[in-house]
Design a protein around this nucleic acid. Sequence first.
DNA 1: CGACTTATGTTGTTTAAGCTACATAAGTCG
DNA 2: CGACTTATGTAGCTTAAACAACATAAGTCG
Lengths: 201, 201
Amino acid sequence: MPISDCEVRDPRVRRTRQLLQAALLDLMQTKGFDEISVHDITDAATINRATFYDHYTDKFALLDATIAGGFHLMLHERNVHFDGTCPTAARAIILAACDYLTQSHNSSDCNRQHAFEPLIDAAIVNAIRRVLAEGMKNRGDAPPFLSPEMVSATVSWAIYGAVKQWFYTPSHPPAEEVVPDILQLVMPILQKALSAEPHLA
Amino acid sequence: MPISDCEVRDPRVRRTRQLLQAALLDLMQTKGFDEISVHDITDAATINRATFYDHYTDKFALLDATIAGGFHLMLHERNVHFDGTCPTAARAIILAACDYLTQSHNSSDCNRQHAFEPLIDAAIVNAIRRVLAEGMKNRGDAPPFLSPEMVSATVSWAIYGAVKQWFYTPSHPPAEEVVPDILQLVMPILQKALSAEPHLA
DNA sequence: CGACTTATGTTGTTTAAGCTACATAAGTCG
DNA sequence: CGACTTATGTAGCTTAAACAACATAAGTCG
């Protein structure tokens, strides 16, 4: 029912969604996601509760959209345009994932919502996955023998898994250092999937 | 046509007016009021130009409402409630006028809009006048023999005249020092007007 | 001068937000 | 248990914002 965020023209819709997303982020600075009700969100956003359901099926969908929006904004600010394989863009996406995870842990109170951290994880993976799928669909050359959806799902989970592992590593080196390692791990997946030979080892 | 700002309940209306006023204040930090078009304002506020005219007849009306809003906000933050004569409240209003004039000169580019400064003046006087008139109308005791409108108009211009004189005085002493002087000047007007004897010298 | 641009208002239609009311479910407490 | 509260989700009606289109006026420039 709700149209994708990026293709909305009507300023009223943009404003409403932006207010709802900002309200959620604001509330998450003091409360855990599970402690936040739809009513809290619409109240903080000065949006009618019924209007909320015109845009999102529930607060989980809002979380998804909010994280996707933040991640896309970060990519946009860094002029990242993924076209399917370009290692430079892949590097940038991995780095952005590191930075986004760091930022989201700094700006939201993650201590008290351990049970809901997987929701955040899933939302971030979703955002990465959509960027990858979009980039692969827009390629000019031959389509991969595996669906872009399958490939992007695999790669996005792989990237996020690696990023999260890095984030919780006690030594926690700078993101710039770990990005090449992660790239080395995931690039083979992309290259393999996009190659023309389906059944080779 | 447009309902008074303070008695509006509909959140959409509040949001629209707030956006327009914020946009005007924002633009006035870089441009003179005369250089700002309605289109500029609605653009910055992400409000449709036609919608602007549902709320204000022109940009002058918006300026008026914006300044009135700012002045009322300042009074509200300081818990000032004028009830007609109370010297304490009158003092607070004069001080607020000093501070508001100072603030508005700091936050807007007044250098390049000399020709339009009277518009700002009139808007501030308007704001003061309405506060005074409101306070006098809500008095419990006998109404003055002169209309509250006449009295508040006189006193508001008097106060603002004095405040502006103070503001442009080269020595420019702290506002706190000049407030008692101004109060001494204008209190007699109030007392005179509210007294029961119409035709005494 | 006349073509062009830009700003200002106005009108009518479409669309989204606000709001009330209702239905349901989950939890709380006496 | 049953009354109470709170959160969630839905439906229909009302109202305001968005928008396109038009008309007018005031420059500007060749």
